[in-house]
Design a protein around this nucleic acid. Sequence first.
DNA 1: TTTTCCTTGTGAAAGTTTTAACTTTCACAT
DNA 2: ATGTGAAAGTTAAAACTTTCACAAGGAAAA
Lengths: 210, 210
Amino acid sequence: MKDLIPEATVRRLSHYLRCIEMMEKCCYGENLQSKDLARMCSISDSVVRRDLSYFGTFGIKGVGYDLKRLKDSIKRILGLTEKKKVVVVGVGNIGRALIGYLSRVDGFEVVAAFDNDPQKIGKKIGKIKIEDAVNITPITANLNAEIAVVAVPSDEAQKVVNRLVKGRVKGILNFALVPLKVPDDVTVRYIELLTELEVLTYNIKKRRKS
Amino acid sequence: MKDLIPEATVRRLSHYLRCIEMMEKCCYGENLQSKDLARMCSISDSVVRRDLSYFGTFGIKGVGYDLKRLKDSIKRILGLTEKKKVVVVGVGNIGRALIGYLSRVDGFEVVAAFDNDPQKIGKKIGKIKIEDAVNITPITANLNAEIAVVAVPSDEAQKVVNRLVKGRVKGILNFALVPLKVPDDVTVRYIELLTELEVLTYNIKKRRKS
DNA sequence: TTTTCCTTGTGAAAGTTTTAACTTTCACAT
DNA sequence: ATGTGAAAGTTAAAACTTTCACAAGGAAAA
């Protein structure tokens, strides 16, 4: 049980979990082998075993893993034991999409949405009323939401994040294209759509040449 | 000028570009030093220099980089010389958000949108008419679009991708939570929103303990 | 012209992640 | 009870990335 786990490993655990859930639906069977999981994820089986071994031993040698037990183990490792409360800041295109997306995902639940546009404040998206962004701190603290999605223009992102941090948010999914400053106990993950498109463009150009 | 460039380097080039454009707007000046760029990106200056050095030499020792020249160089490296045509497949929450987002970004332009829902086909989003997803191949080929955004349910993603590949798409930004099979000359990049949230959850749990 | 200053560009080391090969252990058949 | 086969878990090597420190080289001042 190592202390520092490669980030790629954690990402893959999430992939494994999704595969397992898909397999459950398809009545795949009780037993699951690293090579099956690997094939589904388009990686090699030794990566699967390596990844799992960071966290302990979950399988039976010569046999494989118990599907249900492995699923539970991965959920526990990732901390997905109960529904997580999420607040969304910025109800533009992307914020709205996230609210819609998360409503159809279990494991996460949008409990509040914020914007600073008076036109939007007070309106509803599904069951969620849009609150004024000035109230981020008290509302978030009160709801005990640990995760926030930030989908506001870049120049407002840091301000919003400061309020979220005061509201005791511990994890932020940031769609704004700026690096955010947060205390050590807060994690930020970046979704950089423009960067992804630009990397894609680079790859296209490169492959054309070779 | 190395042959294989770290992916992280390419991502950072995109960040540098964004910083430079921001600096231009703020009348930062003609000259730019690696340490300034580094500060803006919250990284160290040697990373900036190393990243650039993969592609050639762009600065003047003892002085720095010419802002405008560096911007053009990075654009050229990334292949951002002309507007790129993008097609969007799947006009749900996320597809719609992407269309809206890209309309306000220069460098990329949505030229077609597809869905398989008869309710949606024929309707318009901004200037874009939603086409039937069965026509992906001819329309995409005809428009000469090289980039596609895939925002359809996971179980339809591969089918859609096959049509895109036939339509000569060379880069795919995939929001579906499945690995896609594509020929060697096609690049896929994954945006895994659920995975990001799960990794965030893992990090929150871990930090609470330490 | 020469010296000094300054920042770039880069070689080498350190650190990290992935890959592959190997060892161990369990279940089951004999 | 024991041997065999198969797949998990582990170790070691390779590949890749980042970091560090300094040499190189141009600009400006003396």
